Structures are given as C-alpha cells and as structure tokens.
Amino acid sequence: MRAVQVTEFGGPEVLKVVDLPKPVPAQGQLLVRVDRAGINYADTHQAENSYLSQQSLPFVPGGEVVGHTEDGRRVVALTTGGGYAEYALTVPQLAFDVPEAVSDADALALIVQGATAWHLLKTSARLVAGESVLVISAAGGVGSLAVQLAKLWGAGRVIGTASTQDKRDLAVSLGADVAIDAEPEGLVERIIEANNGSRVDIVLEMTGGEVFDASLSALASFGRLVAYGAASRETGSPVSPSKLMAHSKSVAGFWLQDCFRRPQMMREAMADLFDLVAAGDLKPQLGGDYPLSEVVQAHLDIRSRKTAGKLILDPTR
C-alpha cells in the first residue's frame, strides 16, 4: 500500500511516500480502508520529534482517518499513528460511525479539532453564558470551530486573533464579534480594546511564547487560560504564583490524547458535534484537500500558517 513514512527526524522534507505492507489487525483492532486522512499541526511536531509523546523511527504519521471497515461501516477513527496511508489500524472504542448527513471532511474536522474545541470550552474553561472568550488563531482548525461553539453556547463576546485580514474576516463570518491582529507586540492592548475596555474571561491559546504571555496579561479576575499548543515553538516566560494570585487567574493545559483513555469523553463530544453539523448549526471549514503525493507541501503550508480550517490527505492520489 502507499503510505508516508518518516525514517529521520526533521522538517517537511523527511516525509517520503513509499510502498509498505498492508497492516494486519490484531485481536481487538479494526482495519480501515482510508478514504481521507486528517492533517494536524501536531503532525509537524511529530516529524521533528518535538511533540509531547516521543516518536520511534521509522513511523507513518497521521492520527485520524475516515473510511470503511471490513464489514462496510463508514467510520472516522483515531489511530496511534499510521493514518497517512491507504489502510490504517484503530480500536473499536476510538472509531465512530459517521452519520449520512456528515461528510468525510467534516468528520475529520470534528474528531480532533472539533473534540478539542468542545472540551476546551466545556471541560477545561467551563464556559458560562455571558462570558467573553478570546480564541487565538481563530481561523485555524480548532479556532474556527471554537468560535462557533462559543457563540452557540452563549458567550457574551467572542474575540478572535488571526495573522491576515482574510483570516480575520473568516473568523467574523463564523460568529466572532471582532477579530484582531495576532502580532504579539501590542496584543494586550488590542485584546482589551476589542472587549470594550475590559479584560477577557476565557482565552484558548495554542501559540505559546509571547502570545501566551500577552494572553495571560489580558485575562480578567477569575479568568481561565487554556493552553493546548505551542505553534510558535517558543517557551515564553515562567508563570509565577504571584501572577495567578493577583487576579485569581487560572491556567490549564489540554491534550486531547488524555481523553482517549476515557472513551466516554470522546463519545459525548462526538455525538454532540455530529448533531450540530447535521443540523447545520456548526460548519467545519475545509482548508485543503491534498494528494498523498503532496504531503510535503501540505506540511509546508500548515507550518507557514497559509491555511485556514481543516487540511486532509487523499491516499488514492
């Protein structure tokens, strides 16, 4: 079968399309014929071995697929790698039957980015109706869904950040009340201005570095910042207890993989997200459908922040 394999760590150039044996499911596993595989920003970290979980060489990237099981079910599934291929293995508890009203691309947008946005707001930030929400990278895969969910769940004001005017316009079209420049310099002042002179109650932050520092500074008393990424690959300043105590602020981290060990957390999120998409209340954004042969370009594009919404790979091309 055709697959993307990494045999040395590095940038997008280490992604090679090769022929590998079709995987054989062990007891308790499902084999999925992959129609589309999802691309996540975390995949770029895995390729260079800078992610939370360490990689062993060689490996096939890709943590999510949509396709058909051997008995004909159309499922979207999480994998422990191996998704960038014509066939992939998963386990029953992490495979979800896709409703007819939900497209392959929508299903892939939901299983990682959608579930992340859902848990960021519901589980980690504990959004209360009327609170203000700042979504960093509001045109991205998680951000574009978090903007919509925050509005659906009664946020008082939703503010997005994005690097270009087109992306800021997209965030507003999805429900953000305002979208501002993501540049770290002057970000605190722009956040407060966008929130009508007040600091924000909730920040969903995936950049790290200076953006994390600015987001924490712009947090209101009893505000909650949830960090779920480090796209800048910068560490930022240490968070001292005094910074948190001064305004009763909270900082939490979120990693979707921690939900995989509690399957009910995934089932609840996916059922809700499927219903919202089927009803037309939630609209995932497709950012690009790449042939498997163009996987290097896909990673270059996502790393350069040229894209908005969900990126997917077609293993048949």
Rank of each mutant, 00 (worst) to 15 (best):
Q46A: 06
A227C: 09
A47V: 08
E193T: 13
L187Q: 08
A129Y: 06
G10K: 06
V91G: 03
L149W: 11
S50N: 10
A47I: 08
T69I: 11
K283T: 15
D97G: 03
V142Q: 06
G141E: 03
R267A: 00
Q93R: 04
E210K: 10
V17N: 14
Q285K: 05
K122P: 12
E185L: 13
E210Q: 14
I39M: 12
L78A: 01
V128T: 07
A47H: 00
S250T: 15
S304G: 14
G130L: 08
L78M: 07
A115Y: 13
T316M: 06
A231V: 14
Q113I: 07
L145A: 00
W118N: 04
A279M: 06
A3I: 10
M1N: 09
K310D: 01
V75S: 09
Y87H: 09
R261T: 15
Q46H: 07
D104F: 06
R2K: 14
A125Y: 08
R190L: 02
K16P: 11
D19V: 12
Q264A: 11
G10V: 08
H45W: 12
Q297R: 15
V34T: 15
A155V: 13
V158Q: 13
G62M: 12
L244F: 10
F96N: 01
Q165G: 01
D177H: 11
E185Y: 08
S50F: 10
V295H: 00
L225F: 01
H68V: 09
S103V: 08
F59L: 03
S250H: 09
F222L: 13
F212P: 01
G81I: 08
V277Y: 02
D181E: 12
N195P: 12
D301P: 12
V142P: 10
E48F: 00
P21N: 09
A117I: 15
I136M: 10
A194R: 10
L120H: 09
I111Y: 04
V6W: 11
L244W: 13
D166W: 02
A278V: 10
D104R: 07
D258H: 15
L31T: 11
